[in-house]
Structures are given as C-alpha cells and as structure tokens.
C-alpha cells in the first residue's frame, strides 16, 4: 500500500473503523513511513479526544476490585500482602479528606487552594522545620494513635524563592497518605507534578498541580495504597520535567 492509499484510510484507522483487511497493511506502512506515521498519530490523538465527550457515567464501586483481582490472577508472582491491611481504604480516603478540611481546605478537594496566605518566612532551617511541623500538626493529630508521621521541607536547588513542605502518614490500614504544600512557584511552569520516592529511586506519583493561588501556592493530598514507610524523598517537577523542589522526610515529633 502506497502513501496516498494509506492516507486515504487514516481517518477511519484513527477512528478504529478501518477495514480489518486494510489494518495490517496500514500498520506495516506506518512502520517505515515517518510522514504517514506522523499524520496517523495526529489523527489518532484527535480521535482520542472524542472519548471524553460523553457525559461521564459512574461504574459500579466493585469494578475496581474486580480489575485488580483479574490482574493479580494473571501476574506471575502475586505481591506479599499483610492480612487485614486492605480494610482501611475507605477509612483512609475519609481521613485524608478530613485532614485537608482540618487544614483549612475545601472538603473533598484533593487539590485545593489555601484559604490563608503563606506564613511568614522563618529565617533558619530549624525554624522552617518547626513551621512545617506546626502546619501539619492538626493533620497529624487527626490521623489517630496507630499512625506514624514524617515531615520534611522542600527546597529548590538554587536561590529561587520557592519552598514547600511534605507530610506522610503511615497507617496500619496499608493505605498511607501524603500531603504536600508548595509556595512561591511560578504559574508559567505549571502543571507541577509531585512524586514521592524511596531510597532506591522508585517513585510514586502523588498529584498534578494545575492551579496555584496568587502566592504560587497549593496544597495537595492523596491516599496511596501502599506502605510508604521507606518513601522518604519528595520531588516536585515542572511541566518540562525539571525539578523545582526536593526534600527528605524525617519522623515527626509525637502529636500533641
């Protein structure tokens, strides 16, 4: 199949309705023809936009668990799970929502603007650490006696006026929570991505920050279905993947 013939069929190919007899020939052509491949990708991307047009319908709640179960059945080595750890998912979701509410954010907002302006800049590292503890104190208190909390400051690599803080709450439920605040970030470099990583560099995404308040600040939180005990490094990157803030978490002093 030559280029004109392929291009004639690309709209149907992108829409997923190309004749089955043609699909193989089209795919083979796209394998070596960069120009047609580019057009195909552009049209596919346009077609994929259509997927989001219908008003969203809510799948049944148990469908997620069925999907997880079907992947578990197929993967070669099932992960080690601690009995009883799965029970806490809903509790964990409620907890992080409550924690954000306690912190002065809109209820249910995983991504929210802060109601209060950023705190005065503490002058020393120790003061900044204390301020971070103070900021998260009410969240830590609301997390319950069986949880462990770790807190850290987020700082830029240079002298930029950006800063942040992160809190991780490790829960016996196995669904741990991360709360991250940022301040002073430039809006032009949105969206920012927040991730938490362990000592081996295995990273878990926490949130995408699309909205900042006037001071370049935001607060994000997420329940993550894994034990975050060893996840001690928080990284914030900008839209181009450049690191803007990093920080290491240390155990927080007992709440109270």
């Amino acid at each position: 199949m030559n280029c004109p013939a392929v291009r004639d069929r690309l709209p149907e190919h992108a829409l997923g309705v190309a004749d089955h007899h043609d699909v193989h020939a089209i795919e083979r052509h796209l394998g070596w023809c960069a120009a047609c491949r580019k057009e195909a990708r552009d049209l596919e991307r346009a077609a994929a936009t259509l997927a989001f047009a219908p008003a969203p319908a809510a799948p049944p709640r148990e469908l997620e668990e069925r999907i997880i179960a079907s992947v578990r059945r197929e993967r070669p080595s099932p992960p080690v799970t601690t009995p009883g750890r799965r029970r806490g998912r809903r509790f964990g979701v409620v907890l992080v929502a409550a924690a954000l509410l306690v912190a002065g954010l809109g209820a249910g907002a995983v991504l929210g603007r802060r109601d209060a302006p950023p705190a005065d800049k503490p002058s020393t590292q120790a003061q900044q650490q204390d301020a971070a503890f103070e900021k998260f104190q009410r969240i830590i208190q609301s997390a319950g006696p069986d949880t462990k909390a770790a807190v850290g400051l987020l700082t830029p690599s240079g002298k930029e006026p950006w800063r942040g803080a992160a809190l991780v709450i490790v829960s016996p439920s196995g669904h741990d929570q991360v709360v991250v605040t940022v301040d002073g970030l430039p809006r032009a470099r949105r969206p920012y991505r927040v991730a938490i990583a362990d000592r081996h560099g295995h990273a878990v995404p926490v949130a995408v920050v699309r909205h900042l308040d006037k001071a370049g600040g935001a607060m994000v939180g997420r329940v993550i279905a894994r034990d975050l005990t060893d996840y001690v490094r928080v990284v914030v990157t900008d839209a181009r993947g450049r690191t803007v803030l990093t920080g290491v978490l240390d155990p927080a002093p007992p709440a109270g």
Partner: peptide, 21 residues
C-alpha cells in the same frame, strides 16, 4: 509490575471515561 497502586491510579484517572465509552 502489576502493582496494585499503579493499576488503581490508572483506574482512578480513566475508569470512568472507559466505562462511559
């Protein structure tokens, strides 16, 4: 790796539009 959290994250983001489709 078939990691539960990764699949849950993907489902959390796209479960609704896929089901809607």
């Amino acid at each position: 790796a078939g990691d539960d959290a990764a699949i849950r994250a993907l489902y959390g983001r796209f479960g609704r539009p896929v089901y809607t489709m």
